[in-house]
Every structure is written in structure tokens, then in C-alpha cells.
Nucleic acid binder design. Structure first.
Length: 154
DNA sequence: GCCAACGTTGGC
DNA sequence: GCCAACGTTGGC
């Protein structure tokens, strides 16, 4: 499954931060389903919609791609990290991260409102599923394309 | 800050 | 294995 949506809170890490960093290890995922997607299905080269959550205008803010495969998330072993997991052992890491590379920032955010307005065309999109909280999930290619068609024109 | 929805934990 | 309690997510 070569298309993904990944959420980030922009006050923590935004598309502008990724534009500066170029590549960022996607640390801090602490949900087994999201981890399993990264471990079992993500491939280097896969496309990612970069989603801003928990912010004034939630929505897709940019495009990224997977540039490094799943590997142990170092923050789980750091006692000073918010993501420290004392139950995870270095010889059997519980949490993984992938490397995410910047592709481009959209001309404007494709807002959650705008996406919802196309709900009829986006049937099955996890983002619109009731109670969805997953921070990493696969996208159907047609959903990826349709969302990008909502990008504001120049 | 509120709260619905969901995941995790732990007693039994 | 059940399920109540608790913690987290994320839009509003």
C-alpha cells in the first residue's frame, strides 16, 4: 500500500519544520496498529499526506515520502523523553519509527472541512471514519489523488 | 476546556 | 476472557 496519511501537531512538528529538516525520524508513535503499519506495510518511496492535527485549521498541509524503513524509535529508551517506555527493552524494542522526507508544502491547507465536503467521493477514508484516532494509516490511491485535487489553485 | 470515542490496564 | 476505570486523541 504505497499511500499514507500521517498526522502531526504543527505546534510540535509542522510541514515547515519538515521543509527545514528535509528528513525527520517519525518518533513518538505509541499505538500498536500504527506501529504495525510502519513495520509491515510501509516501504521506502511510499507517498505521505502530511496532516496537521490539534490546531486551528486541521487538514493536509503537505506531501512527504518514506525515505527510511522502520527501525527502533530511540525515544522509547530515553528517560527524559515524553515518549519514554520503561517497559521496552533495547534487545526487543516495542516501538519503531520510519524516516520521513519532505516533498513539498501545499499551496494552502486542504482543510478537514474541505475533505468532509467531498465525503461522498471519499467513502472509506479512515480520516472520516467515526472516532478515528489513528495517527498513521494507509490511503487508497484514489483518496490520495482526490485530496490533492482539493489543493487551492495558484 | 469540553467531551465523544477509543485503546490500554489490571482485577477478578 | 470480561469489563470497569483510566488515559489519550483530536475536533470543536
Amino acid at each position: 500500500m504505497p499511500y499514507w496519511l500521517m498526522k502531526s501537531e504543527p505546534h510540535e512538528f509542522s510541514i515547515d519544520d519538515l521543509a527545514r529538516r528535509k528528513v525527520e525520524p517519525w518518533t513518538g508513535v505509541r499505538n500498536y496498529q500504527a506501529r504495525n503499519f510502519m513495520r509491515d506495510q510501509m516501504k521506502v518511496g511510499d507517498r505521505v499526506l502530511f496532516y496537521h492535527s490539534s490546531c486551528p485549521v486541521p487538514g493536509v498541509a503537505g506531501i512527504a515520502r518514506i525515505v527510511g524503513p522502520a527501525k527502533p524509535d530511540p525515544t522509547q529508551f530515553d528517560p527524559r523523553s515524553d515518549y519514554h517506555d520503561p517497559g521496552s527493552k533495547p534487545d526487543d524494542p516495542r516501538w519503531l519509527c520510519v524516516d520521513v522526507g519532505f516533498v513539498r508544502k501545499l499551496r494552502g491547507v486542504v482543510t478537514l472541512d474541505a475533505i468532509r465536503a467531498q465525503a461522498a467521493k471519499l467513502e472509506g477514508l479512515t480520516l472520516l471514519a467515526r472516532g478515528n484516532r489513528l495517527s498513521v494509516f494507509p490511503l487508497a490511491e484514489r483518496h490520495y489523488d482526490l485530496i490533492l485535487e482539493l489543493e487551492p489553485k495558484p
